[in-house]
Write a protein that binds this DNA or RNA. Sequence first.
RNA 1: GGACGAUUAGCUCAGCGGUAGAGCACUCGCCUUACAAGCGAGGGGUCACUGGUUCGAACCCAGUAUCGUCCACCA
Length: 852
Amino acid sequence: MTTPELPTQYTPADVETRSYDRWVSEGYFQADPGSSREPYSLVLPPPNVTGVLHIGHALDHSIQDALSRRARMQGKETLWLPGMDHAGIATQNVVERKLGGEGLSRHDLGREAFIERVWQWKEQSGGAILGQMRKLGDGVDWSRERFTMDEGLSRAVQTIFKRLFDDGLIYRAERIINWCVRCHTALSDIEVEHSEDEGELVSIRYSDEIVVATTRAETMLGDTAVAVHPSDERYAHLIGTHVRLPLTGRSIPVVGDEHVDPEFGTGCVKVTPAHDPNDFEIGRRHSLPSVTVMDDRGIITAHGPFEGLDRFEARPAVVAALRAEGRIVAEKRPYLHSVGHCSRCKTVVEPRLSLQWFVNVSPLAKAAGDAVRDGRTRIHPPELAKRYFDWVDDMHDWCISRQLWWGHRIPVWYGPDGEVVCVGPDESAPEGYTQDPDVLDTWFSSALWPFSTLGWPERTPDLARFYPTSVLVTGYDILFFWVARMMMFGLYAMEGQPPFRVVALHGMVRDQYGKKMSKSFGNVVDPLDWVERFGADATRFTLLRGANPGADVAVSEEWAGGSRNFCNKIWNAIRFALMNGATVGELPADLTAADRWILSRLQHVIAAADAGFEEYEFAKVSDLLYHFAWDEVCDWYLELAKIQIAEGREGTRLVLGHVLDALLRLLHPLVPFVTEELWRAVTGGESAVVAAWPTADPRYTDPAAEAEIIALQELVTEVRRFRSDQGLKPGQRVAARLSGSPLGESENAVRSLLRLEPATEGFTPTARLAVGGVTVEIDTAGAIDVVAERKRLEKDLAVARKEAGQVAAKLGNEQFMAKAPDEVVAKVRGRAAQADEDIARLEAQLAALPSA
RNA sequence: GGACGAUUAGCUCAGCGGUAGAGCACUCGCCUUACAAGCGAGGGGUCACUGGUUCGAACCCAGUAUCGUCCACCA
């Protein structure tokens, strides 16, 4: 065994630069589809190539790394596949902004040169992300790194598009879509964020009898009807008549439509089919024309005085003009209403009539719902499944075309006479056809990630072996964007096999007050900053300690510091063990109670850790190991081991080695760097990465030893409490006489821990403590603070009497005795006995106190 | 407008039917040769409110309040 000199303080920067390259070059993270081991696979939610990883990614990665490292240690053929997403609109925006800084627009460059620029940016930005992942210690299979715009993944996109097209599940239609006037593209419904914004609700008189209300006055230029409820008595007689539209003088019909709520406002609605989704539907039902009054930049195109104005300039201008004509009958300002914003640039989204490509999601969404309903995929925590169903069961068709340049180009070509041809991979469009200029929504290719990365549409060994993946780990915020769509496409492309068996959702990382992190608020944590200051292990451990399933994680520097301290604690425990000759080997039969106790506790901890991992309870697992390591191993066992080693007990060295070896392996998935270093030092093994995951061994379960050590702990704590209360310095030795129930071999340990001298000639006890049948008489070699001690004993006595009273009342309650389960009654009886014992003890101690 | 979640110690959170817990913070005492990034001993909570179910409720049910999140085409 090697016994390297470990410094007294652990320095994460040193430890964390040593292992990663070796892990990769040894091929530990590289999966083999040909092995006979049970497969365990997961795909990394691909970060956007645009940015750098934020603390939320660090949480996501820490969980996945923990799961995959444990699976690997369990002997499974483990694949964690990394990669990145081209993130169409987000990336294009970033590069456009950079161009803007040079005074250029993408149009100045032209499509091809612009895309070239984006690729350059991708190389640079993507590299930064890979560096971050290495620093975090992500055990991913670099040989399988993928990018959504790779050739193979692009083939997958084209293949599934063609398949969906041929199945009639992709269609092109003129619809009202969400349009971002800044990004110049259509957006899907979920790319629109709604917020309650201030606006102005104006009521406009269209005729003597008809008043309509609107928050978007400029759209009235495109009105082609007024709608009322067909059974609204006030207006029924007007249906079929016409009114003259103010400002334009156009004559528009009054129609009756069920959509109108007679209770709301005046009961009359202006109908603008080209600029409002509801109005579009009304227009369809009544064959109304659509009049477009705004272009793709939000500039008014309707001929007249407003032409050329931006929509937000036109709005007050139109209102002013109407007021001048005496048409405004009421204004409500401020008027709070829900306004959609582009999720990328926050610009107010404009509903716009436009020709776009859509996925008919009905059959796909049904299948996606069923797969979770029948348990082929389990959503964890289950509470979040309801959200998933709500979404999947009522999904609108998905607008997939984007008027962008960066992305997968829509594989549809148009002939000179309007022919439409969808071109699959390895096919080419007929001569003279031109390709649709648009690209696909970035989530279209993300939806293929779990199988496109494994080689689909080819039938590769990876696909056969690692699909469906074992688990998907991601934040609940992209349940709809991504998870639901992977489910839809996975089930469609892979003959009903869902992309993952489990979806394990985590929350968002928040600051120490539970507030959302935002750049403007200045509370954003950069994971690399923490890695530098506290270490990657501490950063990961901090995140995992807070990771309750589906719940947000509040983190702070204090927590990170605490995690760093924990790593240091482990470091020093190992340092102590190595200095004391801890070793791994066959355990002898003659072990002390302390040895048997810690071995027994270890078995419980292994079982509990397994249970926690199975349920994705990372906070529980972290907490469990934290307390086992710190409270039990370090604070008690190590202290007892010191005494036993001084006594020359060989078994203790072996137990120490055994327990620390197992503890390091248990901790390795959570804090890989420091455990790797220490585990190699303790065991001389090759690497914790490929070490076996500990399994509980019932032979070491020992309730008697556990009871014995618990009794010892209580006794020691009580005496320490006395010493502390009495102001006896820790170093001060006092004489004591122990008697009563058998402490057996532990008496020496108790004396050592408490620095109790044997009672010799002239021993005159000044205090008598009794715990669990053991009586300790102490000669403090001087007067004790009788008043303080009496006060404390009386307080404890009062507590004990109260407890005794409560418990007696319970035992005297017939209903309780009749209905409570036996184990509960037994427990209460135990409490009664304990209370009686406490009372007797405290009374005796009080009686033994010398009078003041 | 719907749906879901939360409300427990100063802060962040566990506990989800049988004696209120953790980390950090706080108080007191300690440089006890693994660790002061440490050790020992403490203080601190009518578990949001009101009812109900139960022998027994932080935990189950109903309602109220306050936060939060998601979803929504009400002009």
